[in-house]
Amino acid sequence: MGNILEIIGAVLVLLGSVFLFLGALGLVRMPDLYNRIQAGTKASTLGTFLTLFGLLLIIPEWWGKLVLLMTFILITNPVSSHVLARAAHYIKIPLTDKTVADLLNKEETTYKVNEEIKNE
C-alpha cells in the first residue's frame, strides 16, 4: 500500500515539474509582459503545488511544513502577480501589438490610490 502511494507521489512530482517547465517556456515565448505574467505565475503555482503534494504522499511524516508551504504559495503567488501587473501598467509598459482592448484608464485609478497612500 505504501509503495503504491509512493509511486503516485512520484508521478505527481513529475507532472508538477513538467508544468514548471511549460511555465518557463511560456515565459520565454510570450510576446509581452502581461502574457508572461499569466503563463509564468499560473504554471509555477500549480507546478510547485503538485510537486510538494507528491512529496507529501512520499513522506507523510513531513506533513506540517509541506502543508504550510503549499498554503503559503497558493495565497501569495496571485497577490504578487497582481501587484506586478498593476505596477507595470502604472509605469506604462506597452502591451503587444495583438492587443484588442485596453479599458483601464490610468489617470482615474492609479493616481487616486497613490493620493491615499500620501494622506496616510
Partner: peptide, 19 residues
C-alpha cells in the same frame, strides 16, 4: 494550466489579449 500549456505549445501562439 492546461489552457496555458496548450497555448504555449502551439507553434503559432494563439493569443488575443486585452484589458
Amino acid at each position: 494550466n492546461l489552457d496555458v500549456a496548450r497555448r504555449v505549445l502551439t507553434p503559432s501562439l494563439p493569443i488575443n489579449p486585452g484589458i
